[in-house]
Amino acid sequence: MLSVENISKSFLRKQALDDVSFKVEKGSVFGLLGPNGAGKTTLIRIINQIIEPDAGIIRINNDIVTRKHLATIGYMPEERGLYKTMTVEEHALFLGRLRGLSKQDASKMVNYWLDKFEISNWKKKRIEELSKGMAQKVQFICTVLHEPELLILDEPYSGFDPINMELVKNELIAMRNKGKTIVLSTHNMKSVEEVCDSVALIHNSKKLLDGNVATIQGEKKAGIYAIKFRGNMIAFVNALWTGYDVIETENPSDNLFVVKVKMRNDSNFESLLRVLLGQVQIEAAWEVLPSMQDIFIDIVQPKTA
């Protein structure tokens, strides 16, 4: 659906993007990750044709992107605002028409979305009369009004209250299920794991990592397993002997433990279970995958040896 190819951009002497490439599959949610100042917003502005890249091209459905593609994109920037003196309806109609809808279609879609979010009674309210949470809903409606094929959300959860955040998250998943493609830039790693199918990590203007979320987590796993058991901790440690390192222990109740263990040498999950059987009463055991948060921090701030 969206293909970012060798995009570079600098502002005077400051390099904002350096040869960044990735692909976003149709019908997926793509997370654009990176610390502040990494170049995410610059890249999103380039995709939206707000600024031009120094080098590289953007393709949508294999076509080099031009202004006519803008009607197929919905964009909600990080810093978003509305005209305070316009009514909700006027504002949505105005932005819908700018995105290519006819007056009738725009009006129909405004009614549809206001009904869907159960806020039809706000229609004639001026934006300045709305609370922040109400305005956020209106902003989201204005972004999706023209049913874009590609939805780009820059930090969609920043400033949203938890209720709106849930609403938007559910809406994004519903849109993905309808075959829409969604690109979101975010710091919220929990939401990345919840909604993103794949991600790209940009840091210091370069892309450092991209791919499917599960694949990345699989690649970054460190052979750590968690065992939840009842019994004696000493018996547990003795059973492990030298093949495993205990790296974290939790003791939620008297004789209940959750222990994270890292494999040594040729040890594996099966051998771990084997040595423990009979020694402690195992209640659960699972492989611990690194969280996206850990992966993010690990790449952006590598631990010094």
Binding site: R45, I50, I73, P77, E79, R80, G81, L82, L98, R99
Partner: peptide
């Protein structure tokens, strides 16, 4: 338009 940030939304269309 600049201070309430609507301008970025507009620039994505015009």
């Amino acid at each position: 338009e600049k201070s309430n940030r609507i301008v970025e939304v507009l620039l994505a269309s015009v």
